[in-house]
Amino acid sequence: MKKIVGLASFTLFAGLLFQSCDNTERKLPILGEATVEKKMVDGKEVIDSIYPTIPDFKFLNQDSVYITQDFFKDKIYVANFFFTHCPSICPTMQRNLLKAYEKYKNNPKIAFLSHSIDFKYDQPHVLKDYANKLGIDNDQWQFVMGSKADIYGISEKYLVYTKEDASVPGGYDHSGYLVIIDPERRLRGAYDGTNDEQVTKLLEDLDVILNEYR
């Protein structure tokens, strides 16, 4: 009997120890389905998992300047999809992303990227006005537009659903995910930008991933 209690408490103790050490080293998962590749390294066969990444892109931003993946080189960034006169989920999503912007303002390792899905109306000057009114006064948060095919195409890569749909308020249907992309262009987290708990988690997870790319 004593032995069992002893063993149990030891396991518990070890478990706690392991967990606490695991916690400080917590890493964000890599999202998406990996493809497995076999490579030869020093004459030995090793197995490598290749995760989906965000492909190259080129979009016009709020200052009428083309930005590409190079803008986000060596940075962790949070991406989402919205449109300026969206009456439904976007205001909440942007209010929440603004919390992250304010928390990491002037941190050169963190950036934000909002894609407009209203390719007809959201021209650069409209995006600029929107950014100004939201209180964005540096280039850390990029607002971009592009052709329908390009924007809707890349939204799939971010695992965000977007669709032109006349039957929903505002004319566009989309999900309000805030997605973390790492400097290797992999997806590391997706959070519902309209849910307070998930937004709190996003802020915590940004600290975790900043630690990984210190």
Binding site: Q94, N132, K133, L134, T194
Partner: peptide
């Protein structure tokens, strides 16, 4: 609430 906020605080100058 999405636009005007939970406490009626609004959002920036939007």
């Amino acid at each position: 609430q999405n636009c005007h906020g939970a406490k009626g605080e609004g959002l920036g100058k939007l």
